[in-house]
Amino acid sequence: MSTEAVADGFGQAQGGASPSGHGDHSGHASPRTYWTIGGILTLITAMEVAAFYIPAMAPVLVPVLLVLSATKFMLVIMFFMHLKFDSKVFSGVFLTGLVLASFMTVALIVLFQVLPKYDFMG
């Protein structure tokens, strides 16, 4: 066995179960689920690449790709990163960054790529 878990009063104790027992991993998914998610991720990636090559998809390509990749993103954070089963605190600190990041990206695209296309002053 490794060195004993150090219960340190700093919340840094090592161990599968966190000191007060909330962090048990029983809520985490099983390997079977992981394989399924891995399969779905592969499938979605294949769909994305297919959509890229099908000319008929061209008009709706951008929204379709955005939805598909957002789905992959969600699957990874929910199942592989366990956010679906874990404390809301983790979701909170992560989403604060993610929401601001998304807001910034959209704002910069609007400022640089969208607004300049319109001549408001006639």
Partner: peptide, 30 residues
């Protein structure tokens, strides 16, 4: 043994760091 949320500080800290990394990559992607 005590933390106020019962959660591991390592995980709270690391998720915060990942939130911070989101901004780094969002700036590059933007």
């Amino acid at each position: 043994h005590y933390t106020s949320t019962g959660l591991s500080s390592w995980k709270v800290g690391f998720w915060t760091f990942i939130g911070s990394e989101c901004l780094l990559f969002a700036s590059l992607i933007s």
